[in-house]
Design a protein around this nucleic acid. Structure first.
Length: 121
DNA sequence: CATATGACGACAA
DNA sequence: ATTGTCGCCATAT
């Protein structure tokens, strides 16, 4: 059995990996689905420390306000904008229309997802 | 154990 | 729309 923090991290990654192309999700949304209530900052932390060869679509995670978390003009900001536009996610006036692009997982996905309750691997 | 620190979020001015 | 405050929570010192 891995450490609780390790499992949390795994669930967060798994959740982000489930965000379909062309959609986005907020840090808080990911936290909730991953079973870390009010853990928006934790999602940010784990994303900041992603291992080298990861396959996590980090760019699909943005602030609940529809804005990118990085400072406008920074390399990371530009990189993220580029990747999102690559998936046809429109960014107008520096903002993304959450109503339109927010990922809305089906009940199936939510149930299929590993829950915080059965983390014994 | 006490603080400080964030890729956050909700809310009040 | 902006800015500041607070609440949150795992990590780092």
């Amino acid at each position: 059995m891995k450490s609780a923090t390790e499992k949390r991290k795994q669930r967060i990654w798994a959740t982000i990996r489930d965000i379909p192309q062309g959609c986005v999700a907020s840090y808080g949304q990911i936290a909730e689905i991953a079973g870390v209530p009010r853990g928006a900052r934790q999602v940010g932390y784990t994303l900041r420390h992603l291992p080298k060869g990861h396959d996590v679509p980090w760019y699909r995670v943005i602030r609940s306000s529809g804005r990118i978390a990085f400072e406008k003009g920074s390399d990371a900001f530009n990189e993220q904008s580029k990747r999102l536009m690559m998936e046809d996610v429109a960014i107008l006036e520096g903002r993304i229309d959450m109503q339109k692009y927010r990922w809305q997982p089906d009940l199936d996905e939510l149930l299929w997802k590993p829950s915080a309750a059965w983390d014994d691997e």
